[in-house]
C-alpha cells in the first residue's frame, strides 16, 4: 500500500492529535489545519487523497467548506469524511448530498475509522 496524503480539519487540538497519530500509524502522510480560514487557504494548494472534516468549525462550517471543495475541479475526486458531534439525521443527509463520502458521528471507534479510511482510499464508495 502506497502512502496517501490525508488532510485533517478540526478545531479541537486533542482530536487532531489523536487523528494525526492514528493516520500516521496507518502509514499515511498527514497534514492538519485547525480553523476555517486556514482550511480555505489550503484549498489553493495541491489536493490530498482524503479529507477528515469537522462540521462545526469556527469561522466557516464544514458544509460550506465541503461545497467550496467540490466546486474546484482538482478537489472533486478527493474522498471526504465528515465528522460531527451533532448527530441529526437531516445533517447527515445534507452532508452526503453535498458530496461527502462518509458521515461519522463523534465519538467514533478508531479501528472502524481506520478501516473506513483505508477502504475509501482503496476505491470503495460507501454511499
Amino acid at each position: 500500500m502506497t502512502a496517501r496524503r490525508i488532510l485533517i480539519v478540526d478545531d479541537e487540538p486533542n482530536i487532531v492529535l489523536s487523528l494525526e497519530f492514528l493516520m500516521k500509524k496507518a502509514g499515511h502522510v498527514v497534514e492538519s489545519v485547525t480553523d476555517g480560514a486556514a482550511a480555505l487557504d489550503r484549498l489553493g494548494g495541491p489536493p490530498p487523497d482524503l479529507v477528515i472534516l469537522d462540521v462545526m468549525l469556527p469561522g466557516i462550517d464544514g458544509f460550506e467548506l465541503l461545497r467550496r471543495m467540490r466546486a474546484r475541479p482538482e478537489w472533486r475526486d478527493v474522498r471526504v469524511i465528515l465528522l460531527t458531534a451533532r448527530g441529526r439525521a437531516s445533517e447527515r443527509e445534507h452532508g452526503l448530498a453535498l458530496g461527502a463520502d462518509l458521515y461519522v458521528t463523534k465519538p467514533f471507534s478508531t479501528r472502524e475509522l481506520i478501516r473506513r479510511v483505508n477502504a475509501l482510499l482503496d476505491g470503495e464508495r460507501t454511499r
Binding site: 492514528l22 458531534a85 467514533f108
Partner: peptide
C-alpha cells in the same frame, strides 16, 4: 461528545 471523542480515541490508541 467533543471531550468524549478525545477520551475514546486516546484510550483506544
Amino acid at each position: 461528545r467533543t471531550p468524549l471523542t478525545s477520551i475514546r480515541s486516546f484510550v483506544e490508541i
